[in-house]
Design a protein around this nucleic acid. Sequence first.
DNA 1: TAACTCGGTGAGCGTGCGCTCAGCTAAAGG
DNA 2: CCTTTAGCTGAGCGCACGCTCACCGAGTTA
Lengths: 193, 193
Amino acid sequence: MNKRKTQKQSTRENIIAAAKTIYVDKGILNTATSQIADTANIAHGTLFLHFPNKDSLIIELIDVELSKFSDNLKQLILETSDVRTILNRYLTLIQEEEGFFSTLACELPYYKRELRRQILFRQSLIREHFHQVIQQGIEQNIYAKINIPCALTFLFGTINYYLSLNKSFVQEGSVLNKFHEQIIDIFIKILQK
Amino acid sequence: MNKRKTQKQSTRENIIAAAKTIYVDKGILNTATSQIADTANIAHGTLFLHFPNKDSLIIELIDVELSKFSDNLKQLILETSDVRTILNRYLTLIQEEEGFFSTLACELPYYKRELRRQILFRQSLIREHFHQVIQQGIEQNIYAKINIPCALTFLFGTINYYLSLNKSFVQEGSVLNKFHEQIIDIFIKILQK
DNA sequence: TAACTCGGTGAGCGTGCGCTCAGCTAAAGG
DNA sequence: CCTTTAGCTGAGCGCACGCTCACCGAGTTA
């Protein structure tokens, strides 16, 4: 790899890193591309040499983050099929990037259709895995015969709600960390007979 | 009241009605004030004779709607203290203005601090009433000794989640209507022993 | 009826944002 | 060492939006 190519790649990574900082801090929809460029220490125009428009930068940024998240999740899923354990680690993974997921929760309704589709597709895969594990529990007579999709909406809806609240109303610290145990307890209660 | 005053009041009401139509349809943050004026069949400048700026129009619009909602809710609260009944009618009230509450759910994180405070204060009053009714149920040994605030967050979080989904992903009809019974059933299950 | 008041009008101002492009510099190529 | 090329620069274009203001005409007043 020659000097030019490494330089180019490094600039691109700078842009994504800067965009992520801003994303976590105050969201990206209401941030000017010029500010992203400033944060990345590049000229405004340079940004558009690496990304044809603001949307494609957002798409790449989110895709990079969600890929990391999915990879982590896949691993944990292979290790156990205990709902409490999986949920516990799922929440921990989100907490580690809580700023990111808070912004995602708030901005999701405003992304372009295609990006929203991508994000929701990834979410549906996670949902499906939870579904299978709970289904096993029901078949083994551990859990009650509940409406699984609806129970999962309670779970993901609540997490989503906490994440939006965090961004809007809590100054410091992690909301999910504070309510971690309570979320798990109530969800398990929904599953139980 | 002379002709000028009635004319002025009617114009003001036209503006709020137009703003509400747009609010329900596609939200107001991403709508130009010129379009609100078009919908109300008035000149762009007229809007700013009745409201000093866009924000104060949003504030009044939301305040009018939430007042109506609160009044309705107060009445139903006086009539019964059965959680299922109250929740049932609470959901019905939201359904009747589902478009409005969908937009509210999506836009809330982006409103100015003061407006957000107002909206959340109203929500906290509703929350408090649910809290009291459930507390009664626990004292009468009908329900388990659960963490009430956390249970309520599951409820409101889920409703909020359904509302945002509705706006983004469902073309026609009411999401809350479709899942009305399931929401009630699962919430009651959380309360039960 | 003449003078005055006041709600309404809409062209246009200021600003901010996404994005472009002519020009520059330094690395790559011969 | 000279030419070519790739990556970067930043002034500035076009547009959209919130908001203003000089002007108009109908309603009110005396």
